[in-house]
Simulated scan of single mutants.
Amino acid sequence: MLLDGHEWQAYFSDFKRSAFRLEVHQTYTMPAEASTVRDFLAGAPRPADFNASWHRTIRDHAAAGRTMTRAKVVRRPLTPYSRYLFEWCIPGNVAAGEDYQVVDVTERPDHDLPEQDFWLFDESVVVHLNYRPDGTQINRELLQDPDLATYLGWRDLALESGVPFSAYRT
């Protein structure tokens, strides 16, 4: 089942305990980010209110005792998009309360993590985020009867292999 619009957004307001994201691509080409990525690459300063609504979402969940965790797989040298994430996006997410882990696989080509981005909500709902090779999102797919042990294992492996964003040095 493909998710879009309000139906997709509801997963971020309705989860009860936890939301985990595995990010494996090195570049994402998201139309909503095009102007801010362009500004970052041009050397512009980050706007003071950058990602404010997302940060409010993270803070609200943290205040209610719900966790938001992300594991970002990286390879050095970082792509321009990954540098944008590291300099403009992730610091605000972490300050708002998101647990952001970096999994550097530069020297570990056999890392046993999938090449598939996904969200895992409440350890029971899996949504694949499908992308073209250039990082353009194709769709978001709610999996019916996923093998939860596999996704929980990938989550645990990513978290065990990662380091907190604040400790990662590029």
Rank of each mutant, 00 (worst) to 15 (best):
A149L: 10
Q116T: 11
D145A: 15
D99K: 08
V24K: 03
M68V: 11
L148T: 11
S35F: 04
F165K: 02
T29W: 00
L159W: 04
A19T: 00
D156I: 06
L129H: 13
Y11E: 10
D39E: 12
R17Y: 05
T67Y: 03
P109C: 02
S161C: 08
V73L: 12
N93D: 11
H6K: 07
P91R: 09
F40M: 03
Q116P: 00
Q101S: 10
A64P: 06
A64M: 06
F121H: 12
D49T: 11
A63F: 02
S124A: 14
F40W: 12
Q116C: 04
N93F: 02
D134C: 06
P114Y: 09
D156S: 13
L41T: 03
A149R: 12
I58W: 00
D99F: 04
R140T: 08
Q144R: 15
A52V: 08
D104Y: 13
T27L: 04
G153T: 11
T79L: 04
L152Q: 15
D110L: 07
T136M: 04
Y28K: 01
Y11H: 15
F165T: 06
P80M: 08
E7F: 06
A48M: 01
G43D: 02
Y84L: 04
S13T: 14
K72H: 10
P47Q: 06
V74A: 10
V94Q: 02
G5E: 09
I58Q: 05
L159M: 11
Y100V: 14
W88M: 05
A34E: 12
N130F: 00
D104A: 10
D14H: 13
V163W: 03
